[in-house]
Amino acid sequence: MPDLSDGGMYMRFGVFTAAAVGLAVLATPALADGDAKKGAKVFRKCKACHVADEEKNKVGPHLVGIIDRPVATVDGFKYSAAMVEFGADGKVWDIETLTVYLKKPKDLVKKTSMAFAGIKKDSDMENLIAYLQDPSAAK
């Protein structure tokens, strides 16, 4: 049984834990607020190279099931060496990684072959992620 006579230690730990959780929540984009219909409009920037509603590769790999999919794993698509290396340690396209990548792809994967300047507005990103999570919600 722990000695509870020093309640201050437990209080400090509790305050630290609460602060850490609060910072983590603030650091994560509020993507649950995204609008898939608006995201479909943002996705127009991506359509020349990607498809999100069917497993069909174009210049880029299809994006069906992209959320939480391991990096560089779409069958039949030839990824750049940089993307293969980026995903080599088991990275997945979780929302956080995808958000960082889509803001400025070459900042995360230096020699990616994806020629895209990035999504600048947070609201566009939220909407795009909502669309990628469920393209059928935009219909």
Rank of each mutant, 00 (worst) to 15 (best):
Y101N: 05
R12G: 05
I66L: 10
K110T: 14
K139I: 09
D122P: 11
F86S: 01
N57V: 04
K106I: 11
G22T: 03
A36M: 01
E96P: 03
K56D: 13
V92A: 09
G118L: 06
A27G: 12
L132A: 08
L4Q: 09
A138Y: 03
A117K: 15
K41G: 12
K41A: 13
V109L: 01
I129D: 00
L102V: 15
V92G: 03
L23E: 07
K37C: 13
N57A: 10
A19P: 10
E85Y: 00
T97G: 07
D53Y: 10
A130T: 04
L31T: 13
D134M: 03
S123N: 09
S113T: 13
K106N: 11
A32R: 13
G118W: 01
F116C: 04
D89Y: 06
M9H: 11
A27E: 07
Q133V: 15
D35I: 03
V51A: 11
A88Q: 13
P105F: 00
A24C: 10
L23R: 00
I95P: 02
Y10W: 13
A81C: 02
T99S: 15
R12M: 15
K47T: 14
A117I: 10
V109W: 06
M11L: 14
E96N: 12
N127V: 09
P2E: 07
L63G: 06
I119W: 01
L31R: 11
S80E: 04
K47A: 14
D134P: 09
V25S: 02
K56I: 07
H50Q: 07
G8T: 08
T112D: 11
K47S: 12
V59R: 08
P135A: 00
K56G: 02
D3S: 13
H62M: 09
P29V: 12
C46A: 03
G65R: 01
F43L: 06
T17F: 14
M11K: 10
P135L: 02
V74M: 04
T99F: 05
V71G: 06
T99K: 08
P70S: 04
I95C: 12
E96V: 12
A130K: 04
P29W: 00
V15A: 09
G118V: 06
D124C: 02
E126I: 08
Y131R: 02
V59T: 15
V74D: 08
A19G: 08
N57F: 05
Y131D: 00
V100S: 08
A32W: 15
D6Q: 12
A138M: 04
D35K: 06
G65Y: 00
T73D: 07
D68E: 07
I119L: 11
L98D: 02
F77W: 15
V64Y: 01
